[in-house]
């Protein structure tokens, strides 16, 4: 295992220190705990706060999306491990501006337990909370069990829309409804080509024979819907986009935002190959790409592979997507 690290056990705290040193104008820690980060101007009186979180190892998820027009605070755990309820609660208190706090994070068991408990603690302090779970990974469960799906890169769209709604002064119920609506119209599928090596254990996150790919892989290396020989970029895009269109029930005349996301070790060139084919498929079907996003939005350390997400757009969602945002990773002017 070759990695640019110091002590493996300092990996998480040290990358957070790096973020704080690079972006002191955008983010801060409300207390002593480096695992809790909030936007530099938090709390915003009268506005809804949005707290997200989860395991480390997914940058720019989660810490890269704290800022204006996005999330207000975040709590992260060790690599691929949930933050504690205390850390989530601390983030909650630090972003509460009196209008309540939305918990918006991916659907993973450990995270759900800890966010629920943090919500209990917040309630005791008089802070109202709502929860919306990212669950866009279509390969993780069939459509009739969509509420049990895992959350992956498509949560970016929910952050963007809910963050914009909170920024313009929507109520807690309205911000939660915006997030839920976007989650309901987002679908993602990924392919994994090679695992990541976990810094603390030195072990790969999954095993994959040479020349094979895992279709529908999760962002912790969870198995997908099937494993098969590596295909060309066009074939991968055909499979993935076909599955997403079917899941969302999209046809001619639809408008979408597309996110082609790298999982950590896949070069931007390859992502643009996937985008190229995605654009062709959608054009052939009479579906308009209104907003394209290509890059690393949710990774799995240095896992090789990519995911494609589609968000079905209407005027309301598009307006929120285009609203200004400023965070360490993402900006919209």
């Amino acid at each position: 295992m070759k990695k640019i690290i110091n002590k493996p056990e300092d990996f998480v705290d040290e990358f957070v220190e790096g973020i704080l040193l690079a972006h002191p104008d955008l983010v801060k820690t409300p207390g002593d705990d480096l695992r809790v980060l909030v936007r530099a101007d938090a709390p915003l009186t009268g506005k809804v706060g949005i707290v997200t979180g989860g395991g480390s190892g997914h940058l720019p998820l989660f810490k890269g999306y704290v800022g204006k027009g996005l999330c207000s605070g975040v709590a992260i755990g060790n690599v691929f491990s949930s933050p504690s309820s205390d850390q989530i609660f601390e983030a909650t208190k630090a972003v509460d501006g009196g209008a309540g706090v939305l918990y918006l994070y991916g659907n993973y068991g450990g995270d759900v337990f800890n966010f629920d408990l943090a919500g209990d603690l917040a309630e005791l302090e008089g802070i109202e909370t709502r929860t919306v779970l990212g669950r866009d990974d279509v390969a993780s469960q069939p459509k009739d069990r969509r509420l049990d799906r895992r959350g992956v890169a498509g949560i970016f769209f929910a952050y963007k829309a809910a963050g914009a709604a909170a920024e313009r002064g929507d109520s807690l119920d309205q911000v939660a409804a915006v997030a839920e609506d976007v989650v309901d119209h987002t679908a993602t599928m990924g392919v994994g080509l090679a695992p990541t090596i976990l810094p603390t254990t030195g072990r790969p996150s999954f095993e994959l024979p040479d020349g094979e790919m895992e279709i529908g892989i999760g962002i912790h290396g969870e198995p997908g819907s099937r494993r098969g020989p590596l295909e060309t970029a066009d074939e991968i895009a055909d499979h993935v986009v076909g599955a997403l269109l079917e899941d969302l029930g999209l046809g001619e005349g639809a408008r979408v935002a597309v996110l082609v996301n790298g999982l950590g070790a896949t070069p931007l060139e390859e992502l643009y190959l996937l985008y190229r084919r995605t654009h062709q498929i959608l054009a052939e079907r009479g579906i308009e790409i209104v907003r394209p996003y290509v890059g690393e939005y949710a990774t799995s350390l240095e896992m090789a592979g990519a995911s494609i997400s589609l968000l079905e757009l209407d005027d309301a969602r598009l307006q929120l997507l285009d609203a200004p945002a400023l965070s360490p990773f993402f900006q919209e002017r």
Binding site: G77, S81, S84, S85, G110, F113, N114, L117, D120
Partner: peptide
Amino acid sequence: PSTMAALVA
């Protein structure tokens, strides 16, 4: 930070 502790709490 375990699941059991979160459930019990």
